[in-house]
Write a protein that binds this DNA or RNA. Sequence first.
DNA 1: CGTTTTCTCATGCGAGTGCATGGTAAAAGG
DNA 2: CCTTTTACCATGCACTCGCATGAGAAAACG
Lengths: 202, 202
Amino acid sequence: MRKRWAMPKIVDHDDRRRHIAEAVHRVIHDRGMESVSLREVAAEAGMSMGAVQYYVTTKDQMLLLALEHIGVWIGIRLAAVAARRSTPLDLLRDTVLELLPLDEERSYLNRIGLAFQASSVVDDDQAAAMRLGLPLLLSFFAEQIRAAQAAGQLATHLDADKEASILYAFAQGIVNATLVGHYTPEEVAALLDYHLARLHAG
Amino acid sequence: MRKRWAMPKIVDHDDRRRHIAEAVHRVIHDRGMESVSLREVAAEAGMSMGAVQYYVTTKDQMLLLALEHIGVWIGIRLAAVAARRSTPLDLLRDTVLELLPLDEERSYLNRIGLAFQASSVVDDDQAAAMRLGLPLLLSFFAEQIRAAQAAGQLATHLDADKEASILYAFAQGIVNATLVGHYTPEEVAALLDYHLARLHAG
DNA sequence: CGTTTTCTCATGCGAGTGCATGGTAAAAGG
DNA sequence: CCTTTTACCATGCACTCGCATGAGAAAACG
């Protein structure tokens, strides 16, 4: 929906905010959450500190913006996976794989996500954002599980919601060990397939 | 093994270091990883900044010390669980439960652990410490799974190592969602039992 | 005792922090 | 034209940071 603007200086605010959010992402990824500062982000975004302050009045607000953009990004990626319209079970598998740090881009996303997981425990606003996004992800998983059950690819006695929670927890829990180099991408994929195999319909 | 000391001022270095590490833990828990500073930790430990610097020359070293103490602490807790000598399957269940944020003390430990998971992605030394501790935990899990299999409580066709990885990943992955308030402790325990139920021997 | 070694402290330094402020260019409306 | 609104920038302020330094207190040894 187009905003009814506004007299002077035609500037796309959403674009600017996304630009800032992505700069925050890069800083978190490259130098960690502790290196995030207004100056550092401004430099990374190629704009002055005052310009950043114009769109984001406080550091906490800046981080919250970056967190929300992560959520949007994940949503877009998962929607793209869902659009493939393959077998329900393959769809489920691809969805989980999309969230795992199996290549550079997904590692990039997971580094940032992990940083926010830790940060959100201490920051109430970030925790609220997490509580908002989590049910969406879990219901997305559960829906795909139910579809696979309906298609006869997953056992019907499975509790879709619980399986969704377990599957998502597995995906999140394997992230650090993988980023730290304990698992190879192949091993992670093998673990997922091993787990999914037992959910198959007999 | 007792250290051969040393002339003056009888001071237990290990005790001092543990004292500092625990102060770091409290700061991370209460105010987050970003609030950890030499001054803040010194104040929390009730000692001067210079005293802290005597035992720990740099901030990174201080964090590494705190991380290693977390590993030791977890090891002690798990050893205590293992000492209960109940049924192999109950032992496995209790071991996982011990790592989940189901009460205040375990939440305390998990907050700190989650902070270090994020931090270790950016800090090489911390990552190395993680890579050192992970196999121990996983083999601990795997061993208990094998024991349960030998006791006829878990299906023999299960891959103990993979099950251990999945179980541990589940435990780690559920942490943030629980700390953020998405799951109640009861729901988490129910999820674990739901998962373990399918591993039962027929 | 005094010497030696261990331990602790206060302080300083340069750099970086979040945030506020005042000023200014630019575009649209009158 | 001039005014108004938007967008941006440079700078200042009070504070904190990690770390280094040098002095001094405390305890064992001669």
